[in-house]
């Protein structure tokens, strides 16, 4: 039985996380976490180091199993899936894609092949054996290549790309999957100002078509993309709401933004 947050009663939810605990060797990384995501929403998750952001992502993608609580994905056909019971690749096939903090790509494959392998096609072992590229597939890949600005490097090995380009390639791999929820961990890390601004634009353009959860540290970047912000603290949701409201909340300032936050809040 899923209890929807009364606030969102009228809007379709795509993800409900309720009452989740997770501890490692006695340390409570996630503590009674409740989190709801609407269809097509772009949500930014912030929080100080050790707030449990990465563990939260791990739980959503099946990398870590929660000790208790439920993590439910509401599919468009009305089915509910308990993500805590599924394995990583099954969760991914439901349409939940993840971009890691450090770029995770296939460095000995070409940029093009990286995208081919990420396409949302039958992914069983036998199907992979008989897979043939269709004109459709090629079109999708070329679109993605254009979006992530790597068209002219499609036949280069991914290992030879710059750090920023690798980040982009990984986002591109996510796009090729065409997932319903994108989980994006620090997309702007290691990017130049210009690159990170373009990343922000890209994420904004994905809103509505996909649901997004973005974890970020960079305040400038958050200011650019933030719609609704969730602040995690000690594995628990401290506050959520509009960015402006959250950043001026005294509790948030105390645990996370500190003095620096005060300053940025007044400017």
């Amino acid at each position: 039985m899923i209890h929807h947050d009364p606030l969102y009663k009228d809007t379709p939810l795509i993800l409900s996380v309720s009452g989740v605990d997770k501890s490692f060797d006695g340390f409570k990384a996630i503590n009674d976490l409740n989190f709801y995501l609407e269809e097509g929403e772009l949500r930014t998750v912030i929080g100080p180091n050790g707030a449990g952001k990465s563990t939260f992502m791990d739980i959503l993608t099946g990398r870590t199993k929660p000790d208790c609580g439920s993590v439910v994905f509401h599919d468009s056909d009305g089915h509910d899936y308990n993500l805590a019971k599924l394995r990583e690749f099954e969760i991914n096939r439901l349409g939940i894609g993840r971009k890691f903090q450090t770029p995770s790509i296939y460095k000995s494959h070409t940029v093009y092949d990286n995208l081919v392998l990420s396409l949302d096609r039958p992914r069983g072992a036998f199907q992979s054996l008989i897979y043939r590229e269709s004109p459709d597939d090629r079109e999708i890949i070329h679109d993605v290549l254009k979006t992530i600005r790597l068209s002219d490097r499609k036949q280069d090995l991914a290992g030879s790309l710059s750090h920023g380009q690798k980040q982009w390639l990984e986002i591109g791999m996510l796009l090729a999957q065409n997932p319903r929820i994108l989980l994006i961990d620090e997309p702007a890390a290691g990017m130049s100002d210009e690159e990170s601004e373009r990343t922000g634009e890209l994420l904004l353009s994905l809103e509505k078509k996909h649901s997004l959860i973005v974890i970020e540290h960079d305040m400038e970047f958050i200011r650019q993309i933030a719609r609704k912000v969730t602040v995690l603290h000690q594995g628990h949701v401290l506050k959520d709401g509009a960015f402006d409201k959250v950043k001026s909340d005294p509790e948030v300032i105390e645990v996370y933004l500190g003095r620096q936050g005060e300053k940025s809040a007044t400017t």
Binding site: F89, N92, F100, I105, Y106, R123, Q177
Partner: peptide, 11 residues
Amino acid sequence: DSENRVSFSGY
């Protein structure tokens, strides 16, 4: 190269 990425791509 990256086993995790492969399983997070649905394989």
